[in-house]
Design a protein around this nucleic acid. Sequence first.
DNA 1: TTGACAGGCAACCTTTTGGTTGCCTATTTT
DNA 2: AAAATAGGCAACCAAAAGGTTGCCTGTCAA
Lengths: 101, 101
Amino acid sequence: MFKALADGQRRGLLDALRERNGQTLGELCELLPELTRQGVTKHLRILEDADLVVTVKRGRNKYHYLNPVPINEIAERWIGNYERDKLRALSALKAALEEKP
Amino acid sequence: MFKALADGQRRGLLDALRERNGQTLGELCELLPELTRQGVTKHLRILEDADLVVTVKRGRNKYHYLNPVPINEIAERWIGNYERDKLRALSALKAALEEKP
DNA sequence: TTGACAGGCAACCTTTTGGTTGCCTATTTT
DNA sequence: AAAATAGGCAACCAAAAGGTTGCCTGTCAA
């Protein structure tokens, strides 16, 4: 899940879907001209496995939709925890840096 | 930055620092007994480069501190954007899935 | 001052990741 | 029915990530 987000081009795909949801593979390929269709497919597969995009196949097309749920989970569970400790960590950091050698 | 967070053991190190801030390399090594000291060092280097931990060297020890700032930035910039579109994306998703083939 | 302790550096190895090419299937369109 | 369109699958390849071993440098304590 973090791994899926760890690649810039994949984040780019998510951004593209955020701008216009429900794009097909071909449309998304146009946004990454430096990659082949299969390269894009692989990235989308990873995003799909991470449940960050969800797809609908209809006819010979496959439409890709952004799924905001798992990102929300990250925000709430992981980042939330660290946020909770934000001030404490910052003050500990400050204290450590201010101690005289 | 996302890459730094993409590894489970690195997230484990951050968790360890969240529990007790300012640990030395040796202490952190005890938390990952399956890795050698140098393995842990490499992970810490990556976290340091990503500015997720900050270190203070004193004497022969090096103390590691969690830096909550970049995580906060992720939460605000990246996740915030997607959050903003959360409802919109969800409804688009729902609409797409409900369309009859 | 000698030895032990904490950590750094560099070379090396293995697996994963990002990407490609080539071919195949299914749906449209004409 | 034929040709074009949209996508899937599998094998292969290069580069990067994760990890190891071996040795070297500082710092503290006996």
